[in-house]
Design a protein around this nucleic acid. Sequence first.
DNA 1: CTATTACTCTATTAAAACGGTAGGGAATGT
DNA 2: ACATTCCCTACCGTTTTAATAGAGTAATAG
Lengths: 137, 137
Amino acid sequence: MLSKKTQYAFHALTYLAENQEKGPILISEISEERKISLKFLENILLELKKSGILGSKKGKGGGYYLIKAPEDIGLAKIIRLLDGPIALLPCVSLNYYERCENCQEDICGLNVVMSEVRDNTLKVLEHKSLKDVLRKH
Amino acid sequence: MLSKKTQYAFHALTYLAENQEKGPILISEISEERKISLKFLENILLELKKSGILGSKKGKGGGYYLIKAPEDIGLAKIIRLLDGPIALLPCVSLNYYERCENCQEDICGLNVVMSEVRDNTLKVLEHKSLKDVLRKH
DNA sequence: CTATTACTCTATTAAAACGGTAGGGAATGT
DNA sequence: ACATTCCCTACCGTTTTAATAGAGTAATAG
Protein backbone atom coordinates (compact mmCIF):
# COMPACT_ATOMS: atom_id res chain seq x y z
CA MET A 1 0.00 0.00 0.00
CA LEU A 2 1.08 3.56 -0.64
CA SER A 3 2.03 5.54 2.45
CA LYS A 4 0.01 8.55 3.58
CA LYS A 5 2.94 10.64 2.47
CA THR A 6 2.59 9.49 -1.11
CA GLN A 7 -1.19 9.77 -1.00
CA TYR A 8 -0.89 13.33 0.27
CA ALA A 9 1.64 14.10 -2.43
CA PHE A 10 -0.87 13.04 -5.08
CA HIS A 11 -3.56 15.17 -3.47
CA ALA A 12 -1.28 18.18 -3.40
CA LEU A 13 -0.02 17.67 -6.93
CA THR A 14 -3.46 17.31 -8.41
CA TYR A 15 -4.57 20.41 -6.57
CA LEU A 16 -1.65 22.31 -8.02
CA ALA A 17 -2.42 20.97 -11.47
CA GLU A 18 -6.08 21.91 -11.21
CA ASN A 19 -5.19 25.44 -10.16
CA GLN A 20 -2.17 26.11 -12.31
CA GLU A 21 -3.60 29.31 -13.74
CA LYS A 22 -3.63 30.90 -10.27
CA GLY A 23 0.18 30.98 -10.11
CA PRO A 24 2.03 30.00 -6.92
CA ILE A 25 -0.24 28.33 -4.37
CA LEU A 26 0.18 28.57 -0.60
CA ILE A 27 0.96 25.44 1.37
CA SER A 28 -1.80 26.52 3.73
CA GLU A 29 -4.34 26.63 0.91
CA ILE A 30 -3.52 23.08 -0.19
CA SER A 31 -3.53 21.97 3.42
CA GLU A 32 -7.04 23.35 3.97
CA GLU A 33 -8.55 22.35 0.66
CA ARG A 34 -7.25 18.80 0.76
CA LYS A 35 -7.33 18.33 4.54
CA ILE A 36 -3.67 17.57 5.08
CA SER A 37 -1.70 18.49 8.19
CA LEU A 38 0.09 21.72 7.35
CA LYS A 39 3.50 20.87 8.76
CA PHE A 40 3.50 17.39 7.28
CA LEU A 41 2.59 18.82 3.92
CA GLU A 42 5.46 21.31 4.18
CA ASN A 43 7.93 18.43 4.30
CA ILE A 44 6.32 16.65 1.39
CA LEU A 45 6.27 19.67 -0.88
CA LEU A 46 9.86 20.43 -0.02
CA GLU A 47 10.85 16.93 -1.01
CA LEU A 48 8.97 17.26 -4.29
CA LYS A 49 10.74 20.52 -4.91
CA LYS A 50 14.18 19.10 -4.21
CA SER A 51 13.58 16.35 -6.72
CA GLY A 52 12.65 18.83 -9.41
CA ILE A 53 8.92 18.28 -9.64
CA LEU A 54 7.87 21.54 -8.06
CA GLY A 55 9.14 25.09 -7.97
CA SER A 56 8.58 27.58 -5.19
CA LYS A 57 8.58 31.30 -4.47
CA LYS A 58 9.01 32.92 -1.09
CA GLY A 59 7.41 36.02 0.37
CA LYS A 60 4.13 37.66 -0.53
CA GLY A 61 2.59 36.20 -3.65
CA GLY A 62 4.73 33.13 -3.16
CA GLY A 63 3.85 29.46 -2.95
CA TYR A 64 4.44 26.25 -4.86
CA TYR A 65 3.83 25.54 -8.52
CA LEU A 66 4.34 22.77 -11.04
CA ILE A 67 7.48 23.05 -13.13
CA LYS A 68 6.31 20.71 -15.88
CA ALA A 69 2.95 20.12 -17.49
CA PRO A 70 0.80 17.54 -15.67
CA GLU A 71 1.00 15.17 -18.63
CA ASP A 72 4.79 15.11 -18.28
CA ILE A 73 4.82 14.05 -14.64
CA GLY A 74 4.75 10.25 -14.42
CA LEU A 75 3.14 8.49 -11.50
CA ALA A 76 5.95 5.98 -11.03
CA LYS A 77 8.45 8.74 -10.35
CA ILE A 78 6.35 10.21 -7.57
CA ILE A 79 5.81 6.86 -5.90
CA ARG A 80 9.48 5.91 -6.09
CA LEU A 81 10.50 9.24 -4.69
CA LEU A 82 8.34 9.07 -1.58
CA ASP A 83 7.75 5.36 -1.05
CA GLY A 84 10.77 3.72 -2.61
CA PRO A 85 10.59 0.54 -4.67
CA ILE A 86 7.50 -0.41 -6.64
CA ALA A 87 8.53 -4.05 -7.07
CA LEU A 88 7.42 -6.62 -4.52
CA LEU A 89 10.89 -8.03 -3.96
CA PRO A 90 14.20 -6.20 -3.66
CA CYS A 91 15.84 -8.59 -6.12
CA VAL A 92 13.48 -7.60 -8.94
CA SER A 93 13.49 -3.86 -8.31
CA LEU A 94 14.77 -1.79 -11.23
CA ASN A 95 15.57 1.30 -9.19
CA TYR A 96 16.32 -0.11 -5.75
CA TYR A 97 17.83 -3.49 -6.52
CA GLU A 98 19.25 -5.52 -3.64
CA ARG A 99 20.34 -9.13 -3.58
CA CYS A 100 17.99 -11.45 -1.71
CA GLU A 101 19.71 -12.85 1.34
CA ASN A 102 18.20 -16.27 1.47
CA CYS A 103 17.70 -17.16 -2.13
CA GLN A 104 19.85 -18.06 -5.06
CA GLU A 105 18.47 -15.87 -7.79
CA ASP A 106 19.45 -18.21 -10.59
CA ILE A 107 17.27 -21.06 -9.35
CA CYS A 108 14.59 -19.08 -7.45
CA GLY A 109 11.30 -19.30 -9.26
CA LEU A 110 9.72 -16.48 -7.33
CA ASN A 111 11.65 -13.68 -8.96
CA VAL A 112 10.39 -14.68 -12.40
CA VAL A 113 6.79 -14.21 -11.34
CA MET A 114 7.54 -11.07 -9.36
CA SER A 115 9.29 -9.55 -12.36
CA GLU A 116 6.14 -10.13 -14.31
CA VAL A 117 4.09 -8.40 -11.63
CA ARG A 118 6.50 -5.48 -11.66
CA ASP A 119 6.25 -5.13 -15.43
CA ASN A 120 2.48 -5.21 -15.33
CA THR A 121 2.44 -2.56 -12.63
CA LEU A 122 4.90 -0.31 -14.42
CA LYS A 123 2.99 -0.67 -17.65
CA VAL A 124 0.33 1.43 -15.95
CA LEU A 125 2.35 3.66 -13.64
CA GLU A 126 4.99 4.69 -16.16
CA HIS A 127 2.50 5.56 -18.86
CA LYS A 128 -0.01 7.40 -16.75
CA SER A 129 0.68 10.95 -15.67
CA LEU A 130 -0.64 13.47 -13.21
CA LYS A 131 -3.07 14.53 -15.91
CA ASP A 132 -4.67 11.09 -15.76
CA VAL A 133 -5.49 11.35 -12.07
CA LEU A 134 -7.05 14.80 -11.94
CA ARG A 135 -10.51 15.09 -10.47
CA LYS A 136 -13.35 14.10 -12.73
CA HIS A 137 -15.82 16.88 -13.48
CA MET B 1 7.40 -4.67 -0.96
CA LEU B 2 6.55 -8.05 0.51
CA SER B 3 7.47 -8.46 4.17
CA LYS B 4 10.09 -10.96 5.28
CA LYS B 5 7.22 -12.95 6.72
CA THR B 6 5.66 -13.43 3.31
CA GLN B 7 9.02 -14.07 1.68
CA TYR B 8 9.79 -16.72 4.28
CA ALA B 9 6.37 -18.23 3.75
CA PHE B 10 7.13 -18.67 0.06
CA HIS B 11 10.48 -20.24 0.89
CA ALA B 12 8.86 -22.66 3.30
CA LEU B 13 5.99 -23.53 0.99
CA THR B 14 8.23 -24.20 -1.96
CA TYR B 15 10.44 -26.37 0.22
CA LEU B 16 7.40 -28.34 1.31
CA ALA B 17 6.26 -28.66 -2.28
CA GLU B 18 9.65 -29.83 -3.46
CA ASN B 19 9.78 -32.48 -0.73
CA GLN B 20 6.19 -33.63 -0.65
CA GLU B 21 7.10 -37.28 -1.07
CA LYS B 22 8.96 -37.29 2.25
CA GLY B 23 5.75 -36.84 4.26
CA PRO B 24 5.57 -34.39 7.17
CA ILE B 25 8.60 -32.10 7.34
CA LEU B 26 10.05 -30.69 10.55
CA ILE B 27 10.01 -26.93 11.10
CA SER B 28 13.65 -27.25 12.04
CA GLU B 29 14.51 -28.85 8.71
CA ILE B 30 12.89 -26.02 6.76
CA SER B 31 14.53 -23.52 9.06
CA GLU B 32 17.98 -24.95 8.39
CA GLU B 33 17.57 -25.60 4.70
CA ARG B 34 16.13 -22.20 3.91
CA LYS B 35 17.99 -20.21 6.58
CA ILE B 36 14.97 -18.87 8.43
CA SER B 37 14.86 -18.16 12.16
CA LEU B 38 13.23 -21.20 13.75
CA LYS B 39 10.85 -19.41 16.10
CA PHE B 40 9.78 -16.92 13.49
CA LEU B 41 9.11 -19.72 11.07
CA GLU B 42 6.99 -21.51 13.67
CA ASN B 43 4.61 -18.54 13.73
CA ILE B 44 4.43 -18.38 9.98
CA LEU B 45 3.70 -22.07 9.50
CA LEU B 46 1.08 -21.96 12.21
CA GLU B 47 -0.65 -19.12 10.44
CA LEU B 48 -0.54 -21.00 7.16
CA LYS B 49 -2.04 -23.98 8.91
CA LYS B 50 -4.86 -22.00 10.48
CA SER B 51 -5.85 -20.67 7.12
CA GLY B 52 -6.06 -24.13 5.63
CA ILE B 53 -2.99 -24.14 3.43
CA LEU B 54 -0.95 -26.56 5.52
CA GLY B 55 -1.64 -29.58 7.68
CA SER B 56 0.45 -30.70 10.62
CA LYS B 57 1.18 -33.71 12.73
CA LYS B 58 2.59 -33.68 16.26
CA GLY B 59 5.04 -36.01 17.95
CA LYS B 60 7.62 -38.31 16.41
CA GLY B 61 7.34 -38.49 12.65
CA GLY B 62 5.36 -35.27 12.73
CA GLY B 63 5.83 -32.01 10.88
CA TYR B 64 4.09 -29.87 8.32
CA TYR B 65 2.76 -30.83 4.90
CA LEU B 66 0.80 -29.32 2.03
CA ILE B 67 -2.90 -30.07 2.07
CA LYS B 68 -3.48 -29.23 -1.57
CA ALA B 69 -1.42 -29.76 -4.69
CA PRO B 70 1.03 -26.92 -5.40
CA GLU B 71 -0.85 -25.97 -8.56
CA ASP B 72 -3.97 -25.34 -6.49
CA ILE B 73 -2.34 -22.86 -4.10
CA GLY B 74 -2.61 -19.36 -5.54
CA LEU B 75 0.02 -16.74 -4.80
CA ALA B 76 -2.46 -13.95 -4.11
CA LYS B 77 -3.97 -15.88 -1.24
CA ILE B 78 -0.64 -16.31 0.48
CA ILE B 79 0.27 -12.65 0.13
CA ARG B 80 -3.10 -11.45 1.37
CA LEU B 81 -2.92 -13.78 4.31
CA LEU B 82 0.43 -12.59 5.61
CA ASP B 83 0.78 -9.08 4.22
CA GLY B 84 -2.77 -7.87 3.81
CA PRO B 85 -3.99 -5.89 0.83
CA ILE B 86 -2.38 -6.20 -2.58
CA ALA B 87 -3.88 -2.95 -3.89
CA LEU B 88 -1.96 0.29 -3.52
CA LEU B 89 -4.88 2.18 -1.96
CA PRO B 90 -7.38 1.00 0.63
CA CYS B 91 -10.27 2.35 -1.45
CA VAL B 92 -9.48 0.03 -4.37
CA SER B 93 -8.77 -3.10 -2.36
CA LEU B 94 -11.05 -6.02 -3.14
CA ASN B 95 -10.41 -7.89 0.09
CA TYR B 96 -9.55 -5.12 2.53
CA TYR B 97 -11.64 -2.21 1.30
CA GLU B 98 -11.67 0.97 3.37
CA ARG B 99 -13.00 4.38 2.46
CA CYS B 100 -10.30 6.98 1.83
CA GLU B 101 -10.48 9.70 4.44
CA ASN B 102 -9.51 12.69 2.38
CA CYS B 103 -10.92 11.90 -1.00
CA GLN B 104 -14.33 11.76 -2.58
CA GLU B 105 -14.23 8.51 -4.45
CA ASP B 106 -16.71 9.58 -7.09
CA ILE B 107 -14.54 12.40 -8.38
CA CYS B 108 -11.08 11.12 -7.40
CA GLY B 109 -9.10 10.23 -10.49
CA LEU B 110 -6.46 8.30 -8.63
CA ASN B 111 -8.62 5.32 -7.78
CA VAL B 112 -9.31 4.66 -11.46
CA VAL B 113 -5.62 4.26 -12.20
CA MET B 114 -4.97 2.33 -9.02
CA SER B 115 -7.77 -0.09 -9.86
CA GLU B 116 -6.05 -0.71 -13.14
CA VAL B 117 -2.76 -1.40 -11.36
CA ARG B 118 -4.52 -3.78 -9.01
CA ASP B 119 -6.13 -5.67 -11.89
CA ASN B 120 -2.82 -5.99 -13.70
CA THR B 121 -1.17 -7.28 -10.55
CA LEU B 122 -3.91 -9.76 -9.81
CA LYS B 123 -3.88 -10.99 -13.37
CA VAL B 124 -0.52 -12.51 -12.48
CA LEU B 125 -0.87 -13.35 -8.81
CA GLU B 126 -4.28 -15.01 -9.04
CA HIS B 127 -3.33 -17.18 -11.98
CA LYS B 128 0.07 -18.28 -10.81
CA SER B 129 0.40 -20.97 -8.19
CA LEU B 130 3.04 -22.39 -5.90
CA LYS B 131 3.95 -24.73 -8.71
CA ASP B 132 5.00 -21.75 -10.80
CA VAL B 133 7.54 -20.57 -8.25
CA LEU B 134 9.32 -23.82 -7.47
CA ARG B 135 13.08 -23.88 -7.88
CA LYS B 136 14.32 -24.25 -11.40
CA HIS B 137 16.39 -27.37 -12.00
C1' DC C 1 14.81 49.86 6.20
C1' DT C 2 11.67 47.20 8.31
C1' DA C 3 7.55 44.52 8.84
C1' DT C 4 5.23 40.92 6.79
C1' DT C 5 4.75 37.02 4.25
C1' DA C 6 5.94 32.46 3.14
C1' DC C 7 9.04 28.81 2.21
C1' DT C 8 13.34 26.09 4.54
C1' DC C 9 15.53 23.28 7.63
C1' DT C 10 16.62 20.39 11.72
C1' DA C 11 15.04 17.97 15.49
C1' DT C 12 11.78 15.63 18.22
C1' DT C 13 7.99 12.59 19.34
C1' DA C 14 4.25 9.08 19.73
C1' DA C 15 2.42 5.17 17.86
C1' DA C 16 2.46 1.34 14.95
C1' DA C 17 4.66 -2.24 12.35
C1' DC C 18 8.34 -5.44 11.75
C1' DG C 19 11.35 -9.04 12.82
C1' DG C 20 12.55 -11.92 16.13
C1' DT C 21 12.64 -14.41 20.86
C1' DA C 22 11.07 -17.08 25.21
C1' DG C 23 9.01 -20.57 27.37
C1' DG C 24 5.53 -23.43 28.84
C1' DG C 25 1.48 -26.44 27.03
C1' DA C 26 -0.71 -30.12 24.38
C1' DA C 27 -0.73 -33.98 21.43
C1' DT C 28 1.49 -38.08 19.58
C1' DG C 29 4.40 -42.26 19.01
C1' DT C 30 7.17 -45.92 21.20
C1' DA D 1 6.60 -42.75 31.11
C1' DC D 2 9.15 -40.24 27.99
C1' DA D 3 10.97 -38.07 24.01
C1' DT D 4 9.37 -35.64 20.22
C1' DT D 5 7.12 -32.04 17.83
C1' DC D 6 3.77 -28.73 16.98
C1' DC D 7 0.74 -25.02 19.61
C1' DC D 8 0.04 -20.83 21.90
C1' DT D 9 0.67 -16.46 24.36
C1' DA D 10 3.38 -13.00 25.51
C1' DC D 11 7.17 -10.16 25.09
C1' DC D 12 11.15 -7.28 23.22
C1' DG D 13 14.07 -4.18 20.47
C1' DT D 14 14.41 -1.57 16.28
C1' DT D 15 12.74 0.86 12.42
C1' DT D 16 9.28 3.32 10.02
C1' DT D 17 5.42 6.23 9.83
C1' DA D 18 2.90 10.31 10.63
C1' DA D 19 2.93 14.32 12.70
C1' DT D 20 4.69 18.47 15.33
C1' DA D 21 7.76 22.35 16.95
C1' DG D 22 10.34 26.10 16.28
C1' DA D 23 13.92 28.81 14.66
C1' DG D 24 15.97 30.39 10.11
C1' DT D 25 16.14 32.45 5.42
C1' DA D 26 14.51 34.83 1.40
C1' DA D 27 11.35 37.93 -1.05
C1' DT D 28 8.31 41.72 -1.28
C1' DA D 29 5.62 45.89 -0.16
C1' DG D 30 5.51 50.21 1.41
